[in-house]
Computed example of a mutant assay.
Amino acid sequence: MSHDCLFCKIARHEIPARVVYEDDQFLAFHDINPAAPVHLLLIPKHHIASLAEVGSDDSGWLARMVQLVPQLAAENGCNPLPEGGFRLVANTGIEGGQEVDHLHFHIMGGARPWSKRAAPAA
């Protein structure tokens, strides 16, 4: 973990968060500025800055992280398919809109419409 990283501090429980899931590799918590009725952040507990730094050695934990998404979405209020669903977003880099330099997935869902901030790009 990184000493100064915001999400590493949350993973170490040095900064409070509304945690909805935790195991030895991952932590999921509510976004403090939600853009949808359900808006969670899922992070690996080890520090990796973004998807741009993922390599072939990361395939195992990254697959497990992706596999958690549907479970977390369902357990936290996303409506089931076919009418429901969720959005998975991983902003990468400054131009990709990444605000915290620690890989994280935004899991968003719930009844539409959401705010314009979460709307799909035209």
Rank of each mutant, 00 (worst) to 15 (best):
L40D: 07
N33Q: 13
F26A: 10
L40A: 01
Q71H: 12
E53D: 15
P37Q: 10
I48A: 02
L41S: 06
A63G: 15
V66W: 03
D58Y: 03
Y21H: 14
L27Y: 00
D24I: 08
Q71A: 09
I10A: 03
Y21M: 00
E14K: 11
S59E: 15
Q71I: 05
E53A: 14
E75S: 12
D24M: 10
H46R: 15
N79T: 06
P44K: 00
I48V: 15
E22W: 07
P37E: 09
A74R: 15
F26M: 09
H39M: 09
E14D: 12
D58K: 03
V38P: 01
R18K: 15
A52H: 14
R12G: 08
A35C: 11
V54Q: 03
A52T: 02
K45W: 02
G60L: 12
V20I: 10
A73S: 04
A11L: 08
F26V: 03
L27K: 00
V66L: 14
E14L: 11
R18D: 15
Q25E: 14
E22R: 12
A49D: 11
D57S: 12
E53W: 04
V54I: 15
P80C: 05
S50R: 06
H13E: 14
F26N: 03
L81S: 13
N76S: 04
F29M: 08
D24Q: 13
R64T: 00
A35I: 04
G60V: 09
L42N: 01
A63E: 11
Q71D: 07
P34L: 08
L42I: 05
P70C: 02
D58N: 08
L68S: 07
V54S: 06
L81H: 13
I48R: 02
H13W: 04
Q25G: 06
K45E: 08
H47L: 01
R12N: 13
V69T: 14
Q71Y: 05
A17Y: 09
A17K: 10
D31M: 09
L41N: 02
A11V: 06
L41H: 02
F26Q: 01
Y21A: 02
A11K: 04
A36S: 13
H47V: 07
W61H: 05
F29K: 01
E53M: 12
W61I: 02
L72Y: 05
N76Y: 04
M65A: 15
V20P: 07
D57V: 03
S50A: 14
V20C: 02
A17T: 10
I32G: 04
Q67S: 14
L62F: 15
V38T: 14
L42C: 08
P16W: 07
L27E: 01
R12D: 13
A28L: 07
V69F: 04
I15M: 11
A28M: 08
I43S: 02
P44I: 01
F29L: 09
S56P: 12
A17N: 05
S50K: 06
